[in-house]
Design a protein around this nucleic acid. Sequence first.
DNA 1: GTCTATAAAAGGATAGAC
DNA 2: GTCTATCCTTTTATAGAC
Lengths: 210, 210
Amino acid sequence: MVLPDTRTKVLDAAERLFAENGYRGTSVRAITNLAGANLAAVAYHFGSKAGLMAAVARRVIEPITTAQHARLDEVLVRDADPGIADLVEAFVGPLYDEMPAHDAGGARRSRLIMAILGDPAEEARSWAGQDEAAVRERFLSAFARALPGLAAPELWFRMRGILAVTAVDRVEVHHRPTPNCSAGAGEEAKRWALTFLTAAMSAPARGTVR
Amino acid sequence: MVLPDTRTKVLDAAERLFAENGYRGTSVRAITNLAGANLAAVAYHFGSKAGLMAAVARRVIEPITTAQHARLDEVLVRDADPGIADLVEAFVGPLYDEMPAHDAGGARRSRLIMAILGDPAEEARSWAGQDEAAVRERFLSAFARALPGLAAPELWFRMRGILAVTAVDRVEVHHRPTPNCSAGAGEEAKRWALTFLTAAMSAPARGTVR
DNA sequence: GTCTATAAAAGGATAGAC
DNA sequence: GTCTATCCTTTTATAGAC
């Protein structure tokens, strides 16, 4: 068993605190305290607080985009013109599989992504990185082929809808209405999301018709 | 023409800056500077920065919840057992009508709501207030009647989906993929949302079946 | 690589004059 | 109601010893 080095300990602590309190709500001091490291370690290993956030975001997002690429590859091998359900599954599936809600780390990473997406700072855009943009472009093209009646702006609207639903899921944006209605666990929530989003994406275009 | 008093000027400036930079990203100094008011005005009129945020949130949210209640009332008068499309329209419609994207103020208030929902702070929960919770409960019951096959947790999942899609709409959560694919304007975006969400809410339950 | 110490700035809040 | 002046805390970043 290898003990984590300081760099990794700081990264772990930052992931947790950024997820819980957001970027601006987390101080470098709180991170290094939790990590059992020195305040100066952040500057040494990551240059600055922003550099640390970028590193945290990269570590969380990379496995997801990798899985999304792989799933889309599989789908396209099976069928050059895949259906909506397959595309939705290839895009959304990895978000659940890589961040299972029943796992503490998964829920934490999910909250972190929400914190990144919800951050109004311009900087936050760059945290998501180019991986994420590339994946989105690929899926956008695939959906455009599967939904020929849909104009680009409406397709883009729907794509954001997918991102919104999956990002908000498992994040308590409000108090739960009743205690038993908390977020679904693992596979259940994934199935709900796939049902919800496949139906939504399959809706006929309404771009200009009344 | 009545000139706005200091209280209103501060409220306006705060609404704008909170929307653009979030609660934590906005200093009281920046607000009073933009308002052309004195730093101490915030303490005098609102008690504290948090009190100011609560006042801003109330002013934005109240007209929306009022409209949602009214629209649901209308729907229930016409039909004691309304369909999914009517319920979705009654819930989502006011979010677009009260915050038109083509209007600068509408887009700003939309971003503000996103900033509130996305804020990880516990405090942020209370900003949305009880109005919003009451509306959600009413619609939850109405949807439950219209979707008898849907268990409570899955219904709650879908309700959050509606909130997610409408909140994220018109907010650039990422860089736009191509310049022409920006957010849809006004009525168009509303129609896209109603189409997308009505289809999603109408999907058959998948809670436990395979 | 890790630490102490400190710089330098920005933040929220408030006392008290007017 | 509005203003000035100031207090006190917290923040990021860095210089320099070890």
